[in-house]
């Protein structure tokens, strides 16, 4: 059986035919070609596939795609562009919040959700907020610094507005 589902990804509607068992991550990466949705563990453990659904971070590898139908899905592709990075992305670049970069899109998306809920987190709030992610390279201290830096930057932007 196939079902048609409307996936609103980064503000654009996509009508896709899917099989019921297909995960959101599989459809985003495999069908819509979103390279930054990284499918790795398929157990919801590593966090590399994290995207935001209605603003909340979810592991797309274990979520049914059909359950994301008609909801607002944000992926790393909708965040910043190479010429105009989002402050969180820029902070990860500047603080070296990664090595291999495989886990990075997921960390960035969770950081976005975290900073929206908690604009000025301390280091342990950041660590807990990002505990759904594995950085096997072990760059956690620089990831925490990157999120702190992004928080400052975003706070600054908010003040200026």
């Amino acid at each position: 059986m196939t079902i048609e589902v409307n996936l609103r990804v980064n503000g654009v509607d996509h009508a896709v035919e899917i099989q019921p068992h297909e995960s959101l991550g599989r459809v985003l990466n495999g069908r819509l070609g979103l390279n930054g949705v990284r499918i790795s563990c398929k157990e919801g453990e590593c966090g590399a596939c994290t995207v935001l659904v209605d603003g909340e971070a979810v592991t797309s590898c274990i979520m049914l795609a059909v359950q994301a139908g008609d909801r607002d899905i944000q992926t790393i592709e909708g965040l910043g562009t190479p010429d105009d990075l989002h402050p969180i992305q820029q902070a990860f670049v500047d603080e070296h919040g990664f090595q291999c970069g495989f886990c990075t899109p997921g960390f960035v998306m969770s950081s976005k959700a975290l900073l929206e809920a908690t604009p000025h987190p301390d280091a342990s709030e950041i660590a807990e907020g990002l505990s759904g992610h594995i950085c096997r390279c072990g760059t956690y201290p620089n990831i925490i610094r990157a999120v702190q830096r992004a928080a400052e930057e975003l706070g600054q932007e908010a003040t200026n507005e």
């Binding site: 919801g44 979810v58 592991t59 969770s110 807990e128 990002l130």
Partner: peptide, 9 residues
């Protein structure tokens, strides 16, 4: 409970 992402779902 599990991870923040799992708790959301």
């Amino acid at each position: 409970f599990a991870t923040p992402q799992i708790r959301n779902v």
